[in-house]
Structure formats: structure tokens, C-alpha cells
Design a protein around this nucleic acid. Structure first.
Length: 272
DNA sequence: CTAGAGGCCTGCCCGC
DNA sequence: TGCGGGCAGGCCTCTA
């Protein structure tokens, strides 16, 4: 599932193929993913140049001088830049053609989205987003402020988009393990030191994953380079019942907010 | 305001 | 071998 690192790696890969090129065609084969796809609005971009490919949270933004295409990969989306005559695969929903190449969105579970915004870049999906995790806007003071009035589990709080964007289930689990914080700890019970550590660890884990993704996902001309790149360096995610890599205790799984949370009962002791 | 639950959707894995 | 059920999971939306 694409988390922020994979979206960022996708952005870099896609950007070099699209930036400066003119959009020659847009094909929408599926009328609706998570939301209706605004085909008519998207088609107004045909003939215009891509000036940049940017990112906000897990949204990719293909910018032209007359409007933007917003893409979310959801749970199972992936982007490829391939020759325009490449045969379609199952779940290939949208094509954005630039010359002889095409950016093709494939998304089996259809949790993704393709949206349109004017050149002002505004869209309701951006309205309630917190700071980017890799910027200074996400800092200990900010998280302390957000945690102070919440007794919800810290794992839920760092996965809450208004608090900080781009921290999905995988990296929430990892960051809490690396800081030795039990995922169920009420947010308002964390010490200042723990919050500072957590902020730094979230940044480190995401940055490291982007670096790794860069090594395996750099070639977007390839047909389906099944990532799986983050699996190698995970300490807890997907390792339920296995031995903790630090203390050899058996990793445990609990459900928090309907999501699997894997942790080490010894390295991440319950508060009190 | 926060908290909790439901729903979207398909592939995959398990048990029978 | 086939089939049903459960699960995964970001994020919006609804209810309390």
C-alpha cells in the first residue's frame, strides 16, 4: 500500500517524464474510483504543458498553467510511465498521454482518486490537512499541543491527518516501536521527551523509506515493478508472533481503530 | 470539539 | 477443486 514514501518516490519518478511536456490526451476508462472522475474538466488540460509534479500529503499534483490533476493512490494504486501502445491490464483506469509516452494509473481496489483543481490549487481534499511530516512545521511543540487535549491512543493521533499527514499504519507501528511507546498510550500521557523522540523518529523512518524506495522504484518505464521495498527493514509491521529484533520477545497484535497494531510488549511497555 | 463506527472495493488466504 | 468468509486498509462521512 502506498504510504507517503512511495508517493514521494512516485512523484520523483513521474516528474522527470512529465515536466515540460505537453499533455496530448487524457483517457478515463472508469467513471468513478473513490469519487467520480471529472473527465470533462481534466480534458481541458489537453494541449497544455506540465509545469511541475508536486505532492501534498499522499496526493500527487500534476500542475499545468491552466489547472491541476490531483491523484491519490489509495490502498492499491500504482503509476507507470510506459509506451502509449502498451496493452491495457486489468484495473488500468486512467491514461495521461504525453507524446509517445503515457502515465497510466492502475488501482485494483479503487480506493484511489483522480480529481481536478483550478490553478489556485485549492481543493476540498486539502482543507483539513495538517503539516507535512518532513518539514519544520511538524515539530515537538506542534505535536505536544495536539496531544495535550486528547486521550485517544497515540497511534490514532499520529495517523490523524489534521495532526500530521502521511503517517499510515506501517510507519505508525514502526515509529512507536523505535521510540519504545506502547501504541495504546493515551496521547496526553506522553512526556515531552517522548513526543520529541516520536517526532524525530517519524521523520527518520519516512526519510529512510524514501531513500530506499528511490533505489527500487526509480525506473517508471518498467511494467509493474512490484515494490515491496519497505518490507526488508520493518521491525514490527507484518511480523505478528515473530521474535522482536531487539529483545526476542514475541511480537503481539492488537486492533486500534480497526487497524492491526503490532508491538513488542517488552520494548513498548504499557504506561503505569 | 472528540470519539467511534460504517462503508467503499478487490485480491488473497484460509477452512471446509 | 471450488467456494464462502474474513481480512486488509486510507480516508470520508455519519452518529453520539
Amino acid at each position: 500500500m502506498p504510504e507517503l514514501p512511495e508517493v514521494e518516490v512516485s512523484r520523483m519518478g513521474v516528474s522527470k517524464h512529465l515536466t515540460g511536456k505537453s499533455i496530448s490526451n487524457i483517457t478515463v476508462r472508469t467513471p468513478k474510483l473513490r469519487w467520480d472522475i471529472p473527465t470533462d474538466q481534466l480534458k481541458t488540460l489537453i494541449g497544455h504543458h506540465v509545469v511541475a509534479v508536486s505532492r501534498r500529503a499522499k496526493y500527487l499534483i500534476i500542475e499545468t498553467d491552466v489547472g491541476h490533476i490531483i491523484i491519490h493512490l489509495g490502498m492499491s494504486g500504482s503509476l507507470r510511465v510506459i509506451d502509449i501502445d502498451t496493452p491495457l491490464k486489468k484495473h488500468d483506469h486512467v491514461d495521461i498521454a504525453v507524446g509517445a509516452k503515457v502515465l497510466r494509473l492502475n488501482d485494483p481496489r479503487r480506493f484511489g482518486a483522480v480529481l481536478f483543481s483550478n490553478i489556485d490549487g485549492q481543493h476540498r481534499v486539502f482543507d483539513k490537512l495538517g503539516p507535512e511530516p518532513l518539514t519544520d512545521a511538524f515539530n515537538a511543540l506542534h505535536l505536544m499541543h495536539k496531544c495535550a487535549k486528547r486521550k485517544a491512543a497515540i497511534k490514532l493521533v499520529i495517523m490523524d491527518n489534521p495532526v500530521v499527514v502521511g503517517v499510515g499504519n506501517i510507519y505508525a507501528n514502526e515509529a512507536l516501536f523505535l521510540t519504545g511507546i506502547h501504541p495504546l498510550t493515551p496521547a496526553n500521557q506522553l512526556t515531552e521527551s517522548q513526543i520529541l523522540q516520536l517526532v524525530n523518529t517519524v521523520k527518520d523512518v519516512l526519510a529512510a523509506a524514501i531513500k530506499q524506495g528511490g533505489t527500487t522504484l526509480k525506473d517508471f518505464s518498467q511494467t509493474d515493478g512490484k515494490p515491496g521495498y519497505f518490507a526488508q527493514s520493518l521491525f514490527v509491521y507484518g511480523r505478528d508472533g515473530e521474535a522482536c529484533m531487539r529483545c526476542k520477545s514475541e511480537l503481539q497484535t492488537i486492533k486500534i481503530g480497526q487497524r492491526a497494531s503490532v508491538y513488542c510488549p517488552k520494548c513498548q511497555p504499557t504506561l503505569i
